[in-house]
Nucleic acid binder design. Structure first.
Lengths: 186, 186
DNA sequence: TTTGGTTTTTGATTTAGGTCAAAGGAAAAT
DNA sequence: ATTTTCCTTTGACCTAAATCAAAAACCAAA
């Protein structure tokens, strides 16, 4: 749950938690629903309680490219859009019926100003996210299609057989035909 | 200068700045010097006052892969190693005689605890860095060698003709032969 | 349980960019 | 200045993965 996630990074006090948690609002979201579209401001930060989400964008020639998958117990948003209040480069979509906990930008800003621990939490969360992106970048930059898939299995062990193959292929920067052939040879 | 960089992101007060700035220590570093090696903890955060740096790693078959370039007025470090105090995956190297301003992890921690504005600054800095990495990832994930080079020219306009071509090629995930041919056809 | 729509697989062909090898250029070092 | 080392270019060839095109498998709804 959110509490565990919060205290894993920063030792929030009980009072702080009691004040913070109610700002997260439970939302049931149906499969294939969009949370934000390209160009919109991302006004909420989501925590995935159940289900799977992904961020993606469309290339100029209309191809759908998955940018990231968000599994259970992870925060989900278009990070820079949310915190910098810039138009999102991505669509945010839910791939299964999901339970999300959302907090608005306004409330988050309030909590950031009120609690230094919250500032610290978001700082550490961002650094963790950064490390994950760097990890993907290294996998993609110089590795073969098969090695990329191996990375994917390690990074998202529980996700890789619950989402369409095409989403995974585009996430890895390869075609779905290639990924299909890779899977055939184990 | 550092001051400008700090107040660009967060409205530090004069007192805060007067307290914070002296913790940055000026260092003259000669071309090709290493600031940290792979596996070491990154114990300092550097601000580039003059010169160029890069981070890189060696693949298992010994190839040198540039991960990032750091130009003037940018912070330079192995971010996650510095903040999470984990062993660095990268080497950090200076590519020209440079002037750096460094702050130790210990002093940074002290300032982070003392000033909420400092927490905020690092949070925003990290989000900015994250956005840059995401930008590179998108360029690398689905673009041709030529398009990658175009991205590089936009991201590092002043750097691209001051560093060896091989460093740029590996940064973009292509071979130096390919980059050389791209450059020939403008 | 048939129908229509996704997804995935398979095969044939093409191509961007990699690899290998060697020759030029530039720039440090002596 | 001239040697030595490093960096870049050029050419010939090769390969991993893309593209194109169908067929097969899977699902979901009526």
């Amino acid at each position: 749950m959110i509490t565990d996630f919060l205290i894993k990074l920063v030792p929030f006090t009980c009072e702080e938690l009691n004040d913070i948690l109610p700002y997260f609002e439970k939302e049931n979201v149906k499969k294939n629903e969009l949370l934000i579209k390209e160009g919109q401001m991302c006004s909420k930060l989501y925590f995935v309680g159940q289900g799977i989400g992904r961020s993606y964008y469309l290339t100029k020639d209309g191809k759908d490219v998955t940018q990231w998958f968000f599994g259970v117990d992870n925060f989900m948003s278009s990070v820079d859009s949310f915190f910098q209040q810039s138009p999102s480069f991505y669509y945010l979509e839910v791939l299964e019926d999901s339970v999300l906990y959302s907090i608005t930008k306004k409330n988050m800003d309030m909590l950031l100003a009120k609690y230094q621990n919250m500032e610290k939490f978001i700082r550490l969360l961002t650094i963790e996210t950064l490390a994950k992106f760097v990890h993907k970048l290294n996998a993609i930059q110089f590795q073969t299609a098969k090695e990329r898939y191996t990375y994917m299995l390690a990074e998202f062990p529980d996700i890789s057989h619950r989402v369409p193959l095409g989403h995974i292929a585009s996430y890895l920067g390869i075609t779905q035909e290639t990924l299909s052939r890779i899977r055939k040879n184990h």
